[in-house]
Design a protein around this nucleic acid. Structure first.
Lengths: 332, 332
DNA sequence: CTGAAAGCGCTAACAT
DNA sequence: ATGTTAGCGCTTTCAG
């Protein structure tokens, strides 16, 4: 049996409150007694139950679409590391952006006396997130923006990232620049689309609907979209993919059609996950500052836990262009 | 404030034990009372604290090297799904195979009254794992084999997988088959190495030390190893990489040297993660049955939780060859 | 069919 | 400097 505070107390010949005091460094305990108790705890490998009185599990929940997605996995890792430094564990909840799973997980987390929740999942039509706020569990939104709600939020400047990506392609001399994107379901995707349009506009290039392709499936969708674009009579010389998987799908399609990257086609992605360095050629991309995002999210969550009524913040971090081998000058 | 059982009882005009009984479906409760209580619980959005008396958090811990690694992320997702069906949450613990972090995480998990732990991390020199067993928390080893210990274990037949991979290359007519592998630190890697050797031997091919390259770093190591092999005067016509990242590194090096895959070089990997379908050309690989492994691991863990003294099992699952585009017939 | 009460492991106020 | 005790939210006998 797992030893309890009573076992330790009995072994050390003291009362349980004395043991409690040395554990929490409260009250006055003689150096001698403290030492004896500490030794006893070690000897019995005593591990106090974190949640017995305070009903706080020292754990945070992470609501994400899918832990198997590289971007989310890398984000989770950063969050885990930041949390561990503070003695917090990480509960991973993959929702597939499915409302039912979201609700189910939120309920599970409540029952487990989680200290706080980081939300990076869809939460369609705000229904689930309203339920979440009602629980009064501290929440921070990560990579998800719901401007109508006063919640701590950490996002990346998607508009700027897309603008930067497109502008870079323009600087390389490209004039026919396509965009392959996910369906515009979330504000972040919409922003990337707008950033693309704005960059074209600023450069005096005409926005061409026929050069934009929407997808509900990520990777395979990207392949198909790229295939169609590259076979059309107005083939683009550059493609901005709003997601890493979309970009990789594009690379595969180009390969199939014997379109050389970057000679015949430049490709630029978004996220900068492990995938970007693992493809051939390595992908030029807009990097999300994953580590900073994770750190800021945890920071806000901790503040919220400690000061429940504090003013809410909205933190916008800047993405950064990483130039690799999938982009090059436009042919004359 | 989060409502407690007392709030529900008061609202419904009954005692707390009656509420408890309807929650747990125990005792005899009139249909009427039950209904009234259930409605009250719903109205108050009552979420009982899971661990109050039984001291079980309905949560399992997953000790892995790194959640950001695609193979582990996919495994985590499968485990998460299997667990969710049973109302279990998943705590992710990335250890980097570092003894200190392992010990720290094990202690954290104990304090959180985890129901069980799935271990897929290094646990060097068994020190940490012995500590773990002493805790009496149910444990199952996943993708990690410590034959000297009587613990439930789920592994893949690494020897057979490597044997199959190598045999397939031989069947394609290859005679100079190299192997790029991680340092032999863990039994699974050793088995893959032996499987490779055995396949060569069975085919009457000479084992050549110069064709085997060990790496302590995964991806970049793979690149370097491949670079060296492909530039040597006895360049192989096929490479078996014991890991997906190693295989991808190999593909990149081949690309750099203008060695065509599969025309000039066949490459075969191990794991079958998302990376295998995302590279160009798509990777022929030995697939680990991730879903079955996860399912079996959870199954064994649940058994262990319910029947602490049951006989321990060692489950060995078969990997499977998935042929894609990175392998082809040897040139004459 | 329902309720009172003991007990789980621990903290925090209050004695001594 | 140490101990006693009430109480946290819940389950589980045991009475009624």
């Amino acid at each position: 049996m797992k030893p309890t505070i009573y076992d330790v107390a009995k072994e050390a010949g003291v009362s349980i409150s004395t043991v409690s005091k040395v554990m929490n460094n409260t009250g006055n305990i003689s150096a001698e007694t403290r030492k004896r108790i500490q030794e006893t705890m070690k000897r019995l490998n005593y591990q106090p139950f974190v949640a017995s009185v305070k009903k706080r599990m020292r754990t945070i929940g992470l609501l994400i679409p899918n832990i198997a997605d590289p971007f989310m996995a890398e984000m989770a890792r950063s969050i885990e590391d930041q949390g561990r430094k503070l003695g917090l564990s990480l509960m991973v909840c993959s929702t597939d952006n499915d409302l039912e799973k979201e609700v189910e997980y939120i309920s599970m987390l409540q029952q487990k006396y989680i200290d706080g929740i980081i939300v990076a999942t869809g939460l369609k039509r705000n229904k689930a997130i309203k339920a979440l706020i009602d629980t009064e569990i501290p929440v921070v939104l990560l990579s998800r923006d719901v401007p109508s709600l006063a919640i701590d939020t950490v996002i990346v400047d998607d508009f700027f990232g897309a603008f930067e990506a497109t502008s870079y392609l323009i600087k390389l001399g490209h004039k026919r620049i396509a965009m392959i994107t996910e369906d515009i379901e979330f504000p972040s995707i919409e922003c990337r689309f707008q950033g693309y349009k704005k960059a074209l506009e600023n450069a005096g290039l005409m926005y061409d609907e026929g050069l934009v392709s929407f997808n509900n499936i990520s990777f395979d969708g990207g392949k198909k979209s790229a295939l169609a674009l590259l076979q059309s009579n107005k083939m683009p010389t550059a493609i901005f993919a709003s997601t890493e998987s979309l970009a990789i799908g594009t690379i595969q399609s180009a390969h199939e059609l014997n379109v050389k990257i970057p000679e015949d086609l430049s490709v630029i992605g978004f996220d900068n996950t492990i995938l970007a360095t693992m493809c051939v050629p390595q992908l030029t991309t807009i990097a999300q500052p994953i580590e900073e995002m994770a750190q800021k999210a945890i920071e806000l969550l901790i503040e919220e836990i400690n000061t429940p009524k504090k003013v809410r913040q909205r933190v916008v971090l800047s993405p950064e262009l990483i130039v690799r081998d999938s982009t090059g000058k436009a042919k004359q």
